[in-house]
């Protein structure tokens, strides 16, 4: 049973869980960077939408967001397939949480670094790109890795909007065989393996970025 169910679950991970995680995370980081920049803006008009977006996403359950997009939007004529619905929901979710990480990382860089950039003639955007963001990236790797690993597990929620990912495969097989304990434990084990591998990558990345920091 264990081996028979391994293949469909594995395929579910390869075809849905992992692509869903990767695509949502990359798009989410872009949204997060934009949101962080908006929140750091001097202009209130620019800041406010970002503040509301972050507050709304952090203040509502991810499952509710998924259901609004997949089951809710069709009533106003907007029908989105399961996989893109999941991508949208997870992207918005990552965007909000990661924007706070990026904002805090940027603000953790001493003001003297901006000033040093200005005194060699940099504009704000050049200083951000060349001086601040590379340093903020190092600061943000551990918390962003956390978000990434959480996202891997959160994608199991997509099973509830009919995405045939890892956990949905487990549910479907279990519905036929009633081997609930075995199948759900097996699903958990696969998530664990994926997350373990990811945390190895995180360690490597942190080491690479630590080379310019005093030990």
């Amino acid at each position: 049973m264990f081996l028979n169910s391994l293949l469909p679950m594995f395929l579910g991970a390869i075809k849905y869980t992992i692509p869903l995680t990767l695509i949502s995370f990359v798009l989410g980081l872009l949204v997060a960077l934009l949101t962080a920049m908006m929140r750091l803006s001097k202009s209130r008009i620019v800041r406010t939408p970002a503040v509301i977006y972050v507050s709304a996403i952090r203040g509502t359950p991810l499952l509710v967001q998924l259901f609004i997009i997949f089951y809710g939007l069709p009533s106003i004529g907007l029908t989105i397939d399961p996989f893109p619905s999941a991508i949208i929901a997870f992207t918005l979710n990552v965007g909000a949480y990661a924007s706070e990480i990026i904002r805090a990382s940027i603000q953790s860089i001493p003001i003297g670094q901006w000033e040093a950039g200005f005194t060699i003639g940099m504009t704000k955007s050049t200083a951000l790109r060349r001086i601040i963001l590379p340093q903020a990236t190092r600061v943000s790797i551990p918390p962003l890795s956390n978000s990434f690993i959480s996202l891997v597990k959160d994608t199991s929620l997509a099973s509830l909007i009919l995405v045939a990912e890892l956990f949905r495969q487990a549910q479907e097989i279990a519905a036929r065989t009633f081997d609930f304990l075995l199948l759900y434990a097996e699903a958990g084990l696969i998530y664990w393996v994926i997350c373990f591998v990811l945390s190895l990558f995180q360690n490597k990345l942190e080491k690479r970025y630590d080379r310019y920091v005093a030990k």
Binding site: P110, G112, Q113, E115, A116, T119, I120, P134, Y212
Partner: peptide, 13 residues
């Protein structure tokens, strides 16, 4: 102008 800071402010990366 060029500026030299009290706390150096070199780019650590």
């Amino acid at each position: 102008s060029g500026m030299v800071f009290q706390s150096y402010n070199l780019f650590p990366h």
